[in-house]
Amino acid sequence: MHRFANPNQFLRIANPLLPWISALSVLCMAAGLYLGLFQAPPDYQQGESVRIMYVHVPSAWMALFVYASMAIASATALIWRHPLGFLMAKASAPIGACFTVICLATGSLWGKPMWGTWWEWDARMTSVLILLFLYVGYMALIDAFDDPTRGQRAASILALVGAVNVPIIKFSVDWWNTLHQPASVVKLSGPAIHPSMLWPLLIMAVGFTAFYFALMIVRLRSEIAAAKIRNIRLGQVHS
């Protein structure tokens, strides 16, 4: 564990992987786009509009996956006191927030022809909106301190508090939604989805995940460089 916690050790492993992950991401996204836009059949109920699903659903998965990764990185950083986890969480947050925004925007564009409104206080969309607030809070907190390590520590505690709250929020929003809304919302029949639609979805999800990891490594390298710059500057001030 501690071997990988050293930033330079980590970069020695991550840097050679970066081109491969990037290539995987580009290939999967291209294949997913081709399958999703050309090969997959239109839905018998929702027609061609179902094609929005191939960006909407993977980005929803990513919104949750990135938050979970952030929470795990924060927890390991707080428990074993190594800075790499803090930097990983910090590098991930904007990516997760972007996926969340994509999820909300594409959901809105899907909702307009399906539900007749841009925004429906549907349980899932509401939960994702709250998830976006959690990302925003994390990013606001991490930048609010003059000492960057303080911001990273505080934000990591916040990420964990948020992670504990995500299931509670999800549950309460589902509860609230069933109270206030008759089941009028068109829903995808979950596991009964046809393979010709499932494949583009899964390939797209792999592409998004690879994109996240590639971008995370890039941002992490930038964060590590920024930390070294700060160290050097602090050294100059003291000497």
Binding site: G47, C98, T106, P113
Partner: peptide, 21 residues
Amino acid sequence: GGYGSYIWPAYLLAALILTVL
């Protein structure tokens, strides 16, 4: 099938956000 004005903005927006990031 009439949904182009919703599908293409969705894909373009996603591409735009990820590219800018």
